[in-house]
Amino acid sequence: MKLLYFAWLKTKTGMAEEDVALPEDVATVGELLTWLEGRGANFADALSDRGAIRVAVNQSYAKPGDPVGPNDEVALFPPVTGG
């Protein structure tokens, strides 16, 4: 799975993108966030406020219960502030 981080999620995790091998028990957006949180202090800090995180799976907004798979591009970012 390809993971992308934007805005302060990029600053806090310390990376813009990475390729990860998903554990077998990670099948939804919510499970992915929980798994990511356990990967280190920087991830735990970046993901501590779930309400402030938006997730897109293959460039479309996704909810916690939506499925994710090994071939997806998943992006994590704060609420948007363009315009």
Binding site: F6, A7, V80, T81, G82, G83
Partner: peptide
């Protein structure tokens, strides 16, 4: 404009 402000993935630093 309203949708762009809330949906388009841009972030201001």
């Amino acid at each position: 404009m309203d949708w762009l402000k809330t949906k388009a993935p841009f972030w201001k630093l």
